[in-house]
Design a protein around this nucleic acid. Structure first.
Lengths: 343, 343
DNA sequence: TTATTTCACACAACCGGTTGCTCAGCTCGT
DNA sequence: ACGAGCTGAGCAACCGGTTGTGTGAAATAA
């Protein structure tokens, strides 16, 4: 019948002293005599006493909880980010509340609501690709819950974020292809509303311009990132009069779908058409014909860094209320071309 | 300066009524007059009042929090399970606290400790492959925190668990191979301490016996599931005097490593040696030479079912204390062979 | 009219810790 | 011997809700 957990009051009663004395004794407060301190601590271990974090959190208005919302953890890219987040949070004794939006704006909103009610200390969010309304983020701002966005950033002002600086990687990719003698370079981009898509496109256009290669508009197609979208985008390129001799894909999954389609069309991968992708997922190592190169975006590091920023915000938040203009962290992590096949 | 969240007390003061009245008014308690109820509710919405879940949880000893611990979410198998868990939990307004053990026993213990202190209502755990000591789980039992284990089950008595019933899938696999004319069937198993390994082995031996095919001991090798382990296990089989003409692999990742090695040894995949794996991960669809078939373990459903059991436990836990012998849920979900290549 | 019920709300305890303030008793200096 | 200073510990408020018990006034019944 020793069911209920022992509380600080139990200890106090057994020792005929007051709650507060026990509390202070347990935290080795100097104002408690050594003898009492020892007695309390011994009884505490005997009774397997463990402080109820719920009560502490309630009192201290601090929960050591970070809410993480992202589209899906089944993508290696995101699961790596989560690992990066977890490793930093873990060290500082924070725990992760996880929610997948499944690229559904309504679901994203509900998760935000739930986490807000759970009174998370802060949030790390990568928005759903369908999210166009940002009320729920504004709501968090009103509630003084800091957010650091990662990878998929909303189009808002005055936010903290970290993402990949895709331009550098894209430039490397184009240069790499040109050095190999490719001229008809195409891009399978993502949905236009994603900043990540805009950045890729801009990087692509700039790199082409710098190399003085003309870029016909039909060489840029876009996919909604579903399998069907990827296939149809690929078909568009394959059916072009002047078929591209190189394709840069939005990410590895797009590239894999594209390569599969290309194979069906008897295209020799990385020979007739050379493929380059973003993300550099490990899975590709198991493919017979992976993209020739991929642009590494260092998701693990992105997760780490995002968490560091958030924790920093959390620890310095009291001062923030005094500052008129808080400082917004906007970080772009350089990306980097990784050549998989040197052939 | 409207910084602090509005509380029930704020509302009470502004309306010159008591806290309790406000509380009851908000929950539409019948003993509060309609007029007062309306006034309270209106002011509440005006002030953007939202109850502090922390306080409620504290009072009710219920947090709507489920702790999930698994080796790694970067494996598609586990991330699918998490999705299954989340979808059920989400419907009942539970939130997920996530921790990855990284197959490290110490880390697993620390995560358990943290989650216990967070006073999760219950836990869903898939143990690390290195975990041999179960103290931390016993500790949870003492704390009346119910656990449902999934997929990787500890070797303990009186626990709730759900896992794949591998024997049926294994039998299908062996029969499938035999029907195709294979006789030298080998198994690359996982570490011996995992029940999942024992089950695979047993299923394999039984199926072979039933088909009256002799099984020389060297046809069963085991890997620690690292890439190196997979490679070395594969090498053992390839160097056998009587090389197997079919290999059943512990899971898709093992199979992919094995296939890669086999290719290097100029083996024609699914021709010289036919591969079958467990898990049926989607990634394999992108391979040129995936295993010919794979045993689907329905991870999403496993996650769903595990969560249903846990939630059921949570809702009926009060009665449990009266029962002398609680009922332990031990569920084995049938697995099923999925043929990828009908060739 | 008086007794009784009903209504509408207030009071206060409680959940399990933390913490500012108070205070008794002892030591020590003068 | 007396006040100052220090030590060790207790009291009570607090965090933000929920809930059992009381209570005065109005409504109804006798």
């Amino acid at each position: 019948m020793e069911s209920r957990k022992t509380t600080i009051t139990d200890i106090a009663k057994k020792l005929n002293i007051s709650k507060s004395t026990v509390s202070r004794a347990l935290s080795n407060h100097a104002s408690i005599g050594l003898r009492t301190r020892m007695r309390v601590q011994q009884l505490a271990t005997e009774l397997d006493y463990e402080p109820d974090q719920t009560a502490i959190h309630f009192k201290q208005r601090k929960k050591f909880l970070i809410g993480v919302i992202l589209p899906s953890i089944s993508l290696e890219f995101f699961s790596s980010i989560v690992s990066g987040i977890e490793d930093i949070a873990y060290k500082k004794n924070y725990t992760l509340l996880l929610g997948q939006s499944r690229d559904d704006e309504e679901r994203e909103k509900k998760i935000v609501e739930t986490m807000k009610n759970h009174r998370v200390d802060g949030m790390l969010i990568s928005i759903s690709k369908n999210t166009t309304n940002y009320e729920h983020f504004e709501l968090l701002r009103k509630n003084k819950i800091p957010i650091v966005f990662f990878d998929r950033i909303p189009n808002m002002n005055n936010i903290h974020y970290i993402a990949s600086q895709l331009e550098s990687g894209m430039k490397e990719a184009v240069n790499f292809l040109i050095k190999k003698g490719h001229k008809q370079i195409a891009l399978i981009n993502g949905p236009a509303n994603l900043p990540a898509s805009k950045e890729r496109l801009q990087g692509f256009e700039n790199a082409m311009k710098k190399n003085k290669i003309k870029l016909p508009p039909e060489m840029v197609v876009s996919s909604d990132l579903t399998k069907e979208g990827n296939i149809s985008a690929t078909q568009q390129l394959l059916h072009l009069k002047r078929r591209p001799d190189a394709i840069i894909a939005f990410n590895d999954y797009v590239a894999m779908d594209a390569i599969q389609q290309a194979k069906k069309a008897k295209v020799r991968i990385n020979k007739d058409i050379c493929f380059i992708s973003f993300a550099n997922e490990a899975i590709c190592n198991y493919m017979d014909h992976p993209p020739m190169a991929s642009i590494e975006q260092f998701p693990y590091q992105q997760g780490e860094k995002a968490t560091e920023i958030l924790l920093d915000l959390l620890e310095n938040s009291p001062s923030e209320s005094q500052e008129q203009e808080p400082h917004y962290h906007n970080i772009l992590l350089p990306s980097q071309l990784v050549v998989r096949i040197s052939k």
